[in-house]
């Protein structure tokens, strides 16, 4: 077992895990943060997307021990301080940018990554940002609309 200390959603947490524990399983099973979802465990679906040191990555494609000493943000980090849905989350609600909600946290993490780099993204940039996140429910239309709403709101706020 290895002791892993990382910052997650701004909070420092420490827990032990075997080296073979994926960051995904660590976040879910050891830290009890369940917004990050397991879809394929081989790096294709994007349901497990998290921010690592400020960039989006797939948490199924790295081991928790590798995140020791690093900064992770999960979809939970997109909530407001009081736990209410943050701007990106609320935009997904407004546009009904989801159905079953399973890919949604990964989509929102991808959205956060996009909008932190590109506040007024083009359609191509939106597609590029969520191109590695599979959704089986929506056909992506309302997700794209949600991203546009979020971009507008975040621009309006600054």
């Amino acid at each position: 077992m290895s002791e892993i200390k990382l910052t997650i959603n701004g909070v420092t947490r420490t827990a032990s895990a075997e080296p073979r524990t994926s960051l995904l399983d660590f976040i879910r099973e050891h830290l009890g943060l369940t917004a990050t979802h397991m879809g394929c465990e081989h790096g294709v679906c994007g349901a497990c997307s998290v921010m690592l040191d400020g960039v989006p990555v797939r948490s199924c494609l790295m081991f928790a021990v590798q995140a020791d000493g690093h900064d992770v943000m999960t979809a939970e980090g997109l909530r407001d301080a009081d736990g209410a849905p943050g701007v990106i989350m609320d935009s997904f609600i407004e546009a009904h940018g989801m159905q079953c909600g399973y890919c949604t946290p990964g989509m929102m993490v991808a959205t956060h990554a996009l909008l932190s780099q590109s506040p007024d993204p083009t359609d191509d940039e939106i597609r590029e940002a969520i191109g590695g996140n599979l959704c089986r429910c929506t056909g992506y239309a309302q997700i794209i609309e949600a991203i546009r709403i979020a971009a507008q709101r975040l621009r309006d706020a600054t």
Binding site: A35, H37, R79, G83, F92, I93, M98, G101, Y102
Partner: peptide, 11 residues
């Protein structure tokens, strides 16, 4: 959507 978007689903 409120619970699902907030990552509060009960899967």
């Amino acid at each position: 959507d409120k619970r699902l978007a907030a990552g509060r689903g009960n899967f």
